[in-house]
Design a protein around this nucleic acid. Structure first.
Lengths: 254, 254
DNA sequence: GAAGCCACTTGAACATGTTCAAAAACAGGT
DNA sequence: ACCTGTTTTTGAACATGTTCAAGTGGCTTC
């Protein structure tokens, strides 16, 4: 399963990595659509069929980007957050880090996004519960929370929900970013600057009496309807849906 | 530019309509991917090239579905809402109507969605300001509001924003629906049933003192960052972005 | 070493979206 | 009827993602 720079580098794994590296380079140089599978194979010095031996299709190559970017983001966000204890600030840093890490790929980000929007695709972070990128990003947001001073007094259920909520928030930012055509995605950055304090305020206010019923409603709804969809079991969902059977065509190449 | 059943039906318009009808039928029978352009052309009794004379590409044919569904939804929602005056109820009806109208197309809805997620596509309701489907849906939500008893006392800016906000809410429901794999999309229906009263409560509470600063923040943010993106000018946006030039390759076939 | 197995590799063939130069049909003016 | 320009139509050609039967090479087993 390792897609980038793991341990033993057997013959096959070397070829697999070579193809991925080449594809990533060409994607960045020419864009996704302009990069043909033939070009990737030629540039990597292998045959077209060989690329398909390791990757189920062209789309599956972008998983490489996805994974790499997520790792970069994790490192970057942790580094920049170090020492900061204000929740809004930490959140903003986490989101800005994402934009910075994703910047090189903005031009063909649409391709990522189209893939993410396809419920049939194994690459979609929505339909694939254990999507590595999702798991990693949620972990970052956990740290965003834990490193700031607001933990103890929050509603415990909300507190547990928060990392996933912030991930959803990131998804909104990503949507915004994909459609952002301004220079250096300035608009998205401004959006983040405005959002972060607002979200922080929302979280902060959730402690107060007046907001309690509202927060409870929201939390319940998300637990019942959102988390199950992205692969987390909710404590006691109402309609108790029958377990959805996993659908696979082949012995899972990647 | 009429895509369905407009007035004069000149020779060319007849062919255009024939191709669209055939495509829609085949899409429904076999699904989007399984329906080839050759099959559409053959079934319609024209040549492949002819289809491309009227439609820029395969994707552009789904615009037909989009438009038709939107019209159906408008009629359906208005009919069902008639007489109801409770905001939550009207909202729920509007959303449920959408799910009902969209039901026949659920299987290949992913295709719609992937297209909508592509910022370069002229079909995306996000990037195309005057998207007919968007305009139509927003109008429906305007009626949802106007037909219920809560108008006068709301913050006027929020009131003006609300139709677009509800449209965004619909987009969330659509996202949920696309990924919903339950029988008859029961889960989405339950989701709507839970969401509608909650949204109504939010709107209703927005009147109260305590929520005022929060509402103001949210309204400002949406006016500055969300509306401009979907093509509505905000009163006084902060960064005042330079007008984004429209990008077109050809003299706009469809 | 021969035989057999298996991971890996190949490239031609296929399927399908898309383009384009040319033909056909049509409309209007003379 | 004939010329002329425009609209519509055609189908072959093209580009590219994908498949697959066959080949290659290394390894183990006899």
């Amino acid at each position: 399963m390792p897609t980038d720079t793991p341990a033993p580098q057997s013959k096959g794994e070397q070829t697999r990595a070579l193809i991925l590296e080449t594809a990533m380079r060409l994607f960045q140089e020419r864009g996704y659509d302009k990069t043909t599978m033939r070009a990737i194979a030629a540039e990597a010095g292998v045959s077209v069929g060989n690329a398909y031996y390791y990757y189920e299709g062209k789309e599956f190559l972008i998983q490489g980007f996805y994974d790499r970017m997520t790792r970069e983001h994790a490192v970057e966000a942790r580094t920049r957050m170090a020492g900061r204890t204000d929740f809004a600030e930490r959140l903003q840093i986490a989101l800005e880090s994402w934009v910075d890490c994703a910047a090189p790929y903005h031009e063909f980000a649409a391709q990522f996004f189209r893939t993410a929007a396809d419920p049939d695709s194994a690459l979609s972070p929505f339909s694939n519960e254990s999507h590595p990128a999702r798991t990693c990003a949620v972990a970052i947001f956990r740290e965003v929370i834990d490193g700031s001073q607001l933990g103890p007094k929050l509603d415990p259920e909300l507190e547990e929900l928060l990392p996933d909520l912030l991930w959803l928030h990131l998804m909104v930012v990503v949507l915004y970013w994909v459609f952002d055509r301004t220079e250096d995605t300035e608009r998205t950055r401004a959006f983040i600057t405005r959002c972060a304090p607002f979200v922080a305020k929302l979280v902060s206010l959730s402690r107060y009496r007046v907001f309690r019923p509202l927060v409870r409603d929201a939390v319940d709804m998300i637990q019942d309807f959102v988390l199950p969809t992205i692969g987390k079991a909710a404590p006691a969902p109402k309609p108790a849906p029958t377990a959805t059977p996993a659908k696979r065509k082949r012995p899972a190449k990647d």
